[in-house]
Design a protein around this nucleic acid. Structure first.
Lengths: 181, 181
DNA sequence: GAGGCTTGTGTACAGACGTACACAACTCGC
DNA sequence: GCGAGTTGTGTACGTCTGTACACAAGCCTC
């Protein structure tokens, strides 16, 4: 039968599988069994490594948020001029920055879940603070808040809309939001 | 036992109850039984009026989107100056326009659900077109798109953040997004 | 009142869910 | 090699899910 496998980073793989399942099925469709199948791991392995499904979800969201922070950070590292900033934000919204539609979908799942699960508030709080901190290297805090909100709103629109916004339009909107910094 | 009640607008009440349940528990926690309890109708009544839970959810989202459209429309009706527009958008974000946090939560549930259920795309599409149409009475289409995205992003941040944005900050951000129209 | 016909509901069912736990598989000191 | 201790898993349990459907309740025509 199925032998017991030596598998040191199994816990990590389960968390990654959970992120993938959330991306594909949403929090509503995320179950122990689906995650176990995605990670190619027996069902009992999930309750062994995590105290509950909520616990696993929380760890998955935390890891995802950390990865998004790293992407943000890396994406803006080489930016030094206002012009480059406009371009970088535009790239981010267009999905050319290491975060694709599926990554954003998980982020939105996190936001919505955080509305109801207080334990997740800390995750969203940290992530939002981090993303704003990156932008505050270029603009004042209020503007950073505005750009951050704009990015999320535009990505949402872009993902949902059948007639997506053109790159040129995004650039115009972003340019205006950044103001005369 | 429980008598059969004459109840002409029961179907409407069920849809409203479904909206309330989605607001409180999210799509993930929305079940026939919860909705039935909220609407104070027997369980069988739901499968009688709706072919499936997905059907009911869809109708609930459609009604909610229509109500949001009406709110948008009414909220901007008296706006005639640029200054009034800034104030109106700011009010909307602050929740002083007939749409509270719970209404926005349902809207976000809709967006996320629409990512996976193609039947809901039509609802989001119509709703987004309507909200942009209202804004396009004051600004050009590209700017309208930007303001619309900004509203949604800022509301999300405002709802999640423990340290919310001040009204003055929102006004500054909105003012800039509107540009020199 | 008797019979059809529409309207509505209590209940039952099969399946999926989260979770607990007895026990199998491995490790290691001796 | 062998027992004690640790690590991991198959399976079973109770609960909750969406949905179907037999049948009760009301209505309408004669």
């Amino acid at each position: 039968m199925s032998v017991r496998r030596h598998d040191p980073d199994r816990k990590d793989r389960i968390i990654d599988a959970a992120i993938a399942v959330i991306a594909e099925h949403g929090v509503a469709g995320t179950t122990h069994r689906l995650i176990a199948k995605a990670a190619d791991v027996p069902l009992g392995s999930l309750t062994y490594h995590f105290t509950s499904l909520e616990d696993l979800r929380c760890q998955a969201f935390r890891r995802h948020a950390e990865r998004m922070s790293v992407i943000y950070e890396a994406h803006f590292r080489a930016v030094h001029t206002r012009e480059a900033l406009v371009e970088a934000v535009t790239d981010l919204i267009e999905g050319d920055a290491g975060a694709d539609a599926s990554d954003w979908a998980v982020a939105y799942e996190l936001y919505l879940a955080a509305l109801r699960e207080p334990a997740l508030r800390e995750v969203t709080e940290t992530w939002m603070r981090a993303s704003r901190a990156v932008l505050e290297r270029f603009v004042d805090p209020t503007t950073a808040r505005g750009i951050d909100a704009l990015i999320e709103g535009l990505v949402m629109h872009k993902t949902l809309s059948t007639g997506p916004v053109s790159r040129q339009d995004i650039r115009v909107i972003v340019d205006r939001a950044i103001g005369s910094s």
